[in-house]
Design a binder for these strands. Structure first.
Lengths: 198, 198
DNA sequence: GTCTTTCTCTAGCGTCCGCTACACAAAAAC
DNA sequence: GTTTTTGTGTAGCGGACGCTAGAGAAAGAC
């Protein structure tokens, strides 16, 4: 494999261009980002974009994968690495507060904001499913904590997970509306006071 | 005033048509709602729409006023009628959980979701300002509670208000993603556990 | 060098967008 | 009745959208 390519080589770096596309979709959302916006930011012509990435929707789907593996990967790490359910959920929220307000890229969570007003139902549904799947992974981690006796035996993992998800989404909206990392950390402080103890 | 109109009378009820427009904007957002969608749902032709409501943007602004005075009015009532800051904030969240999931109209809060991915910066900014203004009214009510000794003297009204705002926005997103009123009530239960006591 | 393969550029396709000119219809004023 | 005023329907404007045909440019294979 990886045999030498014949023909004229691509004149741009595909990975760099993909990152530029990601930033555009993150900032403006799927539909509000036009192919013209993309080609301008990526520094390439429309035919090059279509040759390298397929159509706009396929490009967006590739952007989603890239996002999940980079800016959106902190959640999975927190779930895997923290010793307790509470520590995992708090770390998810703390890192969200940090990433959502980090300078140098758009604020908030792309999965929450990129297809809010979307006339392509499949795209809207894809992101909605992603959000609900994330909450389901929270619930699974919390249930582990319940089973381990970290939480009261009658604690409802699904409800706690939805609570964390709602706060997470609130943090994202707040960061879009101008809140600072300190502002969001204060929200997390208050949110974690609701966490049940044995 | 109210002297008899000359000329051919309007063949549709303006208020009914405005409510239909509100539902469309609430459901799909400002930009994803086309004039064609509006005329179809309102049951009128495009020239009638433009004669009665001005352009699309002016119609949306009138829809915002109507929303604030109807579906969005519960917040102001809670702030004015409840005796304590805590009761006011909890009622805001409880009524949000109810309204956001009420059958018969779109779910969630229009001010939060109608201009998320919006290429008209003025519209996006108008709704952002509305959201932040709402949080500021929360802060003012909470400060009253602090001054009245309902809360610890060092309680930060602005931070508490932002917390309530974040939970409010999380409830709205959750309702859009399919959460039931019971689901949201459970979120409010947990959220109010974070509220400070003297 | 020539041939083949692949990328890039110009130019423009068809469609939908918000919006409106214009002719006609329906009411009050007279 | 006629005149005046205003709403409605048809039909289409200019522009932006996502996308692509076709010609030329730039590389490896030989």
């Amino acid at each position: 494999m990886a045999t030498k390519q014949r023909g004229r080589p691509r004149s741009f770096d595909r990975d760099t261009a993909l990152e530029k596309a990601l930033r555009q979709f993150w900032e403006h959302g799927y539909e509000a980002t036009t192919v013209s916006d993309l080609t301008r930011e990526m520094g390439i012509g429309a035919p090059s974009l279509y040759a390298a990435f397929g159509d706009k929707r396929t490009l967006f789907e590739e952007v989603l994968v890239r996002y999940a593996g980079s800016y959106g990967a902190f959640g999975g790490r927190a779930l895997a690495e923290e010793p307790t359910a509470r520590a995992a959920m708090e770390r998810v929220l703390r890192e969200a507060a940090a990433v959502f307000t980090e300078p140098g890229h758009p604020h908030g969570c792309m999965v929450i904001h990129a297809a809010t007003n979307c006339t392509t139902p499949e795209i809207e549904q894809t992101l909605r499913a992603q959000r609900n799947a994330n909450i389901a992974t929270f619930a699974a981690r919390i249930q582990q904590g319940v089973d381990a006796g970290e939480l009261p035996g009658d604690a409802d993992a699904a409800r706690l997970a939805r609570y964390v998800g709602a706060v997470f989404q609130g943090l994202s909206q707040q960061s879009r509306d101008g809140a600072s990392r300190q502002d969001l950390d204060a929200v997390v402080d208050l949110a974690m006071r609701g966490w049940p103890t044995v």
